[in-house]
Amino acid sequence: MRGGAARAGRGFLLPGLLFLFAIDLVPLLYSAWVSLYNWWLLRPRDVRFVGFGNYAGLAADPEAWRAVVVTSLFTAGAVVVEFLAGLGLALLFAQPFRFLRPIRVLLLLPLFVVPVVGATMWRVIFHPEVGVLNYYLAQLGLGKPAWLSDPTLALVSITMVDAWRTIPFMFLVLYAGLEVLPAELFEAAAVDGASRWQSFRHVTVPLLAYIMLVALLIRGMDAFREFDIIFVLTGGGPGTATQTIQMLNYRVFGLGHMGMANAIGVVTLALVAAMCLVLWRAVLPPRREAAPERP
């Protein structure tokens, strides 16, 4: 009976698995297969199998390595800023105060702005001559920084814009997590004389760890694959200061080099998977072996 039920359960899973296979795995395998070919759209009759030649080409290309570094810096910077700001806001909004609801709605507004529109707006704000940001900075005697044309500032600028857009997401996820934490544990900690910091460190953080991990994983994967904001704000420049793996992929794909473009896509997937694994290990404590039962 139990075996029959298990078989039936697996049968019910089958349509969903087939659907996932069709929309996820098939394109992925096709992409991996294409990455093994030298396929240039301009020469459709000259498609050659090159094995791992495209991957070897990438490994030997300093521009590709630089793109990995830029992507890692951007992802780390953006996720850390967004996580800390989102957590801070979530803790703040977990306390009752007047006008909490309307302020919370206002805080979420950037989430609803189309990324390209938001980035275009920031491009105007950052404009060195007519931008509102430099106008006020100049009024304060702080000069007119070249937000998008200075190689160091450009990376900071795109990180700021990404943070503006996605801090509300972090806030939303962590705030939802905080709202469902059991009040009894905090009361017990207070009875035991725990300070606010001790209560946060030893009660809130462990209980919120899974939520934090989900938020970090989602944002980490998104930031690693960020494209639209960088495309609109800097196009990967100045020089290659903000050329991420996605920008490099866009350039290669735009020139019709399908094999190399797909190889970059597969490498991106591998890097994102590795990043997720590292985050998983870092955030979640290792599982302890079950304690032996007392005789």
């Binding site: 301009l42 521009e63 190689p151 420049g237 100045p238 020089g239 290659t240 200061a241 350039r251 735009g254 020139l255």
Partner: peptide, 23 residues
């Protein structure tokens, strides 16, 4: 040249490195 789009794109990125001080 058939390959000119590639050549021009390579020129663009190299000149961008030059003006940004990378090269």
């Amino acid at each position: 040249l058939r390959e000119f789009a590639d050549i021009q794109e390579h020129l663009r990125i190299t000149v961008a490195k030059l003006t940004a001080g990378e090269l």
